[in-house]
Computed example of a mutant assay.
Amino acid sequence: MQGVLTGFVVVASLVAVGYALGRAGVLGPAGQTVVSRLVFFVGSPALLVQTLADADVHVLFSGQLLVAAGGVLVTLVLWVPVAVLRWRLPRGEVVVGGLAGSFVNAANIGLPVAAYVLGDLTAVLPAMLLQMVVLAPAAVALLDLSGRSGRVGLAGLLVPLANPVLLASVAGIALSVTGWSLPTALSQPLGLLAGLAVPGALLAFGLSLHGREGRGWRAPPVLYASALKAFVQPLATWLVARALGLPDAAVYAATVVAALPTAQNVFTYAVRYEVGRELARDSVLVTTVLLAPVLLLVSVLLPH
């Protein structure tokens, strides 16, 4: 549990700083939006290029990728019909809620958990690559399109292709596949900009907590998305891993990664497209609180 506690301390510290900044009004009323946009347009693309360029893309075709994809698919299948038919949420909120129920915090919490709980930093790589290469580009493309009213012509359909998340993913994969390395004059500035992504997202999340409605987490969509993320996704991942015949250690690792809370990236996307902010923010909060008991339960029940 040391890894979980380390992750909590890191997250809580930066979120607390963001909250303090919001309470003091240091960044003004638009501070949260400015920080979130900086993360979306600068920090996240730089981190994507840097991470994917150094990653082994063969992981994309591994059994662990299929396991991670299976868990995500189950949560989306359970989320979308309820969000559309029962609550009749706008398309943008359906996308944000789907991410809230499936997009794991593989960076600032996942890496410490992988290091101290699993003893293997590469355990989070399949989920991270799935999110960077498939989920994030697909989600921002849908959010781009959902923000457009009326008929969408060819020009409108091409707009998502210019999204920084998608372009950064393509660039990172291209570097990995070709084996090319960026010159030092480019890689070092890129690394500095990539350092904005995680702390920036956490600061923006902390800024959003100032002045929030204290009971917002009780909203049915928030509770449902959080339950899918905290309980259903790990269970579905475990079932898929067992069905594929993975060894106990791999099943345990995949289940632990699936139990990670909703990533702050989801809130960043919600702020960028001005849709589902409360849903994203409160889902991140609820799933982060649930992480410790869920991981304890997984560690007790599963052989590893």
Rank of each mutant, 00 (worst) to 15 (best):
L203A: 12
P247K: 11
A292D: 06
V177T: 07
G7L: 12
L125R: 03
P247W: 11
L129V: 01
Q188P: 13
L207H: 09
G18N: 12
L203Q: 11
L235Y: 09
P183H: 14
L118W: 12
A30E: 15
V10I: 15
T33Y: 08
V134K: 05
P199Q: 13
R281I: 03
P90I: 00
I109A: 06
Q64M: 11
A230V: 04
A168Q: 03
V96E: 00
V134P: 06
T255Y: 10
V289K: 07
G25V: 07
L246I: 11
V289T: 08
A280C: 06
G214S: 13
L291K: 06
L209Y: 10
T288F: 06
A155Q: 12
G3C: 11
P126H: 04
L246H: 11
W238C: 14
P81Q: 05
E274K: 09
R91V: 07
A69R: 06
V152R: 15
V104I: 07
W238D: 09
G216A: 04
G25W: 12
G63R: 14
D56P: 03
L182Q: 04
Q32R: 15
N163L: 01
V11F: 15
L290F: 03
L228Q: 00
V35Y: 10
L192P: 04
V134C: 10
P183W: 15
L239M: 14
G153H: 10
V74K: 07
E93Q: 12
P29M: 07
N265R: 07
P247M: 06
